[in-house]
């Protein structure tokens, strides 16, 4: 008799337990679908989501990612919002495709500039663009640039240099003047390249703003003007 009783009790408890799951905690159960709401445009969540699907492949943190790292305050100190937004919308050089609607991409101009502001807020380290140096290309003197390059850069970045040559015509063909400017100004810390005002071998105090412009002008002058100049 007691066996039957305990069996009945067990069954009742089990049934009650099953019924309790939905009855008590229905709203907090993990399976409940979340109301479909996409993150507010310009919010940090939205920025991260957009960055992760559209930008991260090339522009990820540190040395991860092949192009200029956007999760890096060094870049945001050098870049202006207008320039980043324009890059997003129109692309840049030969390897950054246009992400604006008119270029076949997903973003309206408003979204591109919201994305830029969102990224600066997340990764700019609180810094506005550094007033010390322009974010966009400034014209310089190529022959002065060559002498600066030979002293400050060629040790690592010249032909046969430890970091590989930046005067390689194929490399120069692929990178725009603005790309060179950003590379010199922001550096690639994680890959061992200093920013413009950081110590370099042969230049303990880095470069001056004029020297940056001159070096970029020199590198630009080394770029082959047509494909026929390239000898692979």
């Amino acid at each position: 008799m007691s066996a039957i009783r305990s069996r009945l009790m067990m069954s009742a408890l089990l049934a009650g337990g099953i019924a309790l799951i939905p009855a008590t905690a229905c709203d907090r159960l993990p399976g409940r679908p979340k109301a479909a709401q996409s993150a507010q445009e310009g919010s940090p969540e939205w920025t991260v989501e957009v960055f992760n699907t559209s930008c991260r492949g090339c522009h990820a943190q540190g040395a991860v990612g092949a192009a200029v790292p956007l999760m890096d305050s060094a870049y945001w100190r050098a870049a202006s919002d207008e320039q980043v937004t324009r890059g997003v919308l129109e692309g840049q050089g030969m390897l950054m495709p246009a992400f604006g609607l008119s270029g076949g991409g997903p973003f309206t101009p408003a979204q591109a500039s919201a994305l830029t502001r969102g990224m600066r807020a997340l990764w700019g380290g609180g810094a506005q663009k550094s007033p010390e140096i322009s974010g966009t290309l400034v014209a310089g003197n190529a022959s002065n640039g060559k002498s600066v390059f030979d002293v400050a850069c060629a040790g690592c970045h010249g032909v046969g240099g430890s970091a590989g040559s930046v005067t390689d015509p194929m490399y120069l063909r692929l990178i725009s003047d603005q790309g060179l400017w950003t590379a010199v100004v922001a550096g690639r810390k994680a890959l061992g390249s200093p920013a413009w005002n950081e110590p370099m071998p042969g230049r303990p105090n880095g470069l001056t703003t004029v020297e940056v412009a001159d070096v970029v002008a020199y590198l630009s002058s080394q770029r082959p003007r047509s494909m026929s100049e390239l000898k692979p």
């Binding site: 991860v64 092949a66 990178i175």
Partner: peptide, 24 residues
């Protein structure tokens, strides 16, 4: 292509041309 970054150990110590190659 736009969401998965090139892993760091495939970029470290590469020449500028090779890093541009990773971009390509």
């Amino acid at each position: 292509w736009s969401a998965l970054p090139t892993p760091e150990h495939f970029l470290a110590g590469r020449t500028p041309l090779e890093v541009q190659g990773a971009n390509v």
